[in-house]
Amino acid sequence: MKQFYGTTLPNPLMLGTAQYPSPAILEQAFRDSGAGVATVSLRREGAGGTGQSFWQMIQSLGVHILPNTAGCHTVKEAVTTAHMAREVFDTKWIKLELIGHTDSLQPDVFQLVEAARILTDDGFQVFPYTTEDLIVAERLLEAGCEVLMPWGAPIGSGRGLNNEYALRAMRAEFPEVPLVVDAGIGLPSHAAHAMELGYDAVLLNTAVARAGDPVAMARAMMKGVEAGRLAYDADPIEARDMAEASTPVIGKAFLS
């Protein structure tokens, strides 16, 4: 398994921590699924306060913490949030999210590259939430990113992989770079799909947190990524147009 900035993850499932019915359910979803990374949204107002119980609870999960800049619309906001995250969680990791469009929550890739460069120069290890555009991906790598996180579909939409062709192309173009499908996953089959394409991990939040039974859905997602990973490593057969019988028919006696 590829390393993420020198860290080997226990498994390919990264879960967000927003929107669960309660912290107790969040905790159980992590425990029962075994997800190895928790993303945490930092809202500016919370950073100065004392006794941030919720963040302490996330830290006590004992998983890798990937703070994010969710909801940031400008480079300045994202950089400020990243600095706060580093202080609160004592980690260089930052999931860089720069929203460019209100309805699709599509990343603003121009600002994304700029912020990635600033943060990398400042010692951060950046996980950029990007589109499937290959040139943007190149620019992000040039800016110092060692991981890429293209979207599957718009955040929270649960549509699965909207552009399988482009995600395949990205995998083929950057065979050595750890790639994570981030956003748009709704079902375990979507998560499996990403892994079958050779992706290294899947990051999702809404599909689990807003499911009727978040704990069960977290477990299902883990089974999805595991199935997809196993299948990818097992070298699946090629799809073809005509049937290919698994036993030869020539020479067999048959009755009419």
């Binding site: 107002e45 919370g46 100065g48 306060g49």
Partner: peptide, 11 residues
């Protein structure tokens, strides 16, 4: 509903 313990002001 915000997981924050700062009640000083509205944003």
């Amino acid at each position: 509903m915000i997981e924050s313990e700062d009640s000083s002001r509205i944003t």
